[in-house]
Design a protein around this nucleic acid. Structure first.
Lengths: 337, 337
DNA sequence: CGTGCTTTTGCACACCTATGCAATGCCTCG
DNA sequence: CGAGGCATTGCATAGGTGTGCAAAAGCACG
């Protein structure tokens, strides 16, 4: 294993100073002549600038920390893939951290600490909250943070979500239009803004339309829990279920059809939230509110980079609207067909 | 934004030299007395060692590069999550790169180059090949590479896969025992060792059992393609299909049941490969060969760290056996029930 | 108390690049 | 031809840590 080739080596070979080499590779001004000489020498020696040294001195690592909770819900792998790609396109790289399932703020804080250690230029928190202490710490370190698919009011952090309240409302309108009268709701985790907003939007719009929600149960974004509370709602005689995300909806549909022998949508209409790729699979054919992942990710990346380049920038709060995708898991109102 | 607190600041406050601080934090020998003084001062000032500077001088970044092809197949998010967690446990971090769908060696090479720039301590390539030139370059740079779920004979690279040939053979035995006589195979991409090995094992074992494989078609790990070639095989009158991975199997099952109105397993038995979490969903209830992700990941991490710590270590080639998981998508031989 | 040994500590330098500053070269215009 | 302006270049230093080396300190023992 031979020693790395440094900018000095290149400089020596090209007959210029080390600073000249540095300038050529960092895009600063340099005459055509030296630029050519340097590049030629660099190619000959196989020189590549040392990113670590560069980061050390500039204080910018061109690395983004991405914290993601759990990838079992296919919404997140999709987002992760797009983050990685979009950031690569912007010349950034992605340092991924997973926070264990039932992790508290302590774990998250430890992870953020490690990110600070690595001098990441920015942080994306996907479906993860952030303790106030850490938020303050990032602020102090001048590291931008954007929450993805999770809000945190009063935190002063930038955030990108879909229009969750509106989405919930759309489902309410759709089910009422479909002639349903006994709606139930397997909610997304009520500890998350996302879950609460969808629930609020759904229940509020139902009320406006003069309908009652027979029952709301927290499914906690969990397969087993979702099935458990579905049984409770079935006991109340629901004829339609709005489910807090697609991932739970799949479990519920399996339970209804395969365990209980019920028909979807004839016995019960099911509407989900997310429109993960699997929702389009024929086995589920799930009617659901689309979260436009692509646009959400692009917006998040843009917001982050904006903050990185202009530290004084305001923390933006963005909601992105997504359509209700009509498929076969819920009765479709006449005239919409 | 205040200046970072450095080891000099801590040293000054603790009344020792900077080297003492360095030694305390890098675990080298230091007396109890100074160690205490240093830690106290560090806590008071909120000091954290600068990872970049440390990496610059030690040449070890404690970062692992993970290249992953596409996360649409749920096998990979699962693996990714485990990699991240296991590496975190070992004190490493994960820099994720995604290589675009139809990317050639050029793209992969560019990505690896970026990893080298970041001085990663090791590289995991999940379902991604590696050009010979780059392999040589990693070798030269002394950076260990492990292939995950992909073999590359003659590359001299370490690799971890499941026992794909054996797995294919197990499926052959199972289908024959189930009384099937007209077996077809929607193969995994024949450009990958994984796909070829499964196919070879399946076909060879069938032959040993005196059975013929009616047809083999390359599904290229792609939903659409898998469905297309399924139709071809159906035209030949198959009564059982071994499908190169679960992801394709889902698409095929949807096609058979929802589009063609066939019954699985009554009309056609379906067996997949991977045992992704979704395979256990009641809607599919897929009989499949399990790839023990957990053990595969742990083995990969262990092999990588082993090579990092002992550069002269041999590149190990590991195959991990996984059981055939019996579910409802394929006729179960009598006596096995 | 002196000697030999081990542990601890400080000094100085290395790691590799970016950048402020001053000097040099070049070009233009009067 | 000379002066002034601008682009370019080299020098030297900073960025924060780890580590070899030698000096110092601690320790045990005769």
């Amino acid at each position: 294993m031979t020693r790395r080739v440094t900018s000095f080596d290149v400089a020596a070979r090209a007959g210029v100073s080390q600073s000249a080499v540095s300038r050529v590779f960092s895009g600063a001004s340099a005459s055509k002549a030296t630029s050519d000489k340097v590049r030629e020498a660099a190619d000959a020696l196989g020189y590549r600038p040392n990113v670590l040294a560069r980061s050390l001195i500039t204080g910018r690592s061109r690395i983004i920390g991405l914290v993601v909770a759990y990838l079992g819900n296919p919404f997140y792998p999709d987002a992760l893939e797009r983050f990685s790609r979009d950031l690569q396109d912007e010349g950034y790289h992605t340092l991924v951290f997973t926070v264990p399932e039932g992790a508290g703020d302590t774990d998250t804080d430890r992870i953020i600490q490690q990110m600070l250690d690595h001098q990441v230029d920015g942080i994306v928190l996907a479906s993860v909250g952030l303790g106030d202490a850490l938020a303050a710490r990032c602020e102090a370190a001048g590291i931008p943070v954007v929450l993805f698919n999770r809000g945190q009011i009063g935190s002063g952090l930038a955030q990108v979500t879909s229009a969750n309240r509106l989405g919930g409302a759309k489902v309410a309108e759709f089910l009422v239009a479909g002639g349903h009268t006994r709606m139930g709701h397997v909610a997304g985790w009520q500890g998350s803004s996302t879950g609460r907003d969808r629930t609020d939007g759904f229940v509020a719009r139902l009320a406006e339309l003069g309908q009652d929600c027979i029952g709301v149960e927290d499914g906690r974004y969990d397969h087993v829990e979702a099935v458990r509370v579905t049984d409770i709602l079935l006991g109340k005689g629901v004829d339609a279920l709005f489910i807090g995300n697609d991932h739970m909806a799949f479990a519920v549909m399996d339970h209804l059809r395969c365990t209980l022998g019920l028909s979807v949508p004839n016995d019960v209409s099911i509407v989900g939230y997310d429109d993960v790729p699997m929702a389009a699979f024929a086995a589920y054919d799930l009617t659901t509110v689309r979260q436009p992942v692509g646009r959400m990710v692009k917006t998040t990346v843009a917001a982050l980079i904006h903050q990185i380049e202009d530290k004084s920038a305001q923390a933006e709060v963005t909601e992105i609207d997504g359509p209700l995708i009509l498929r076969g898991s819920a009765r479709i109102p006449e005239g919409l067909q």
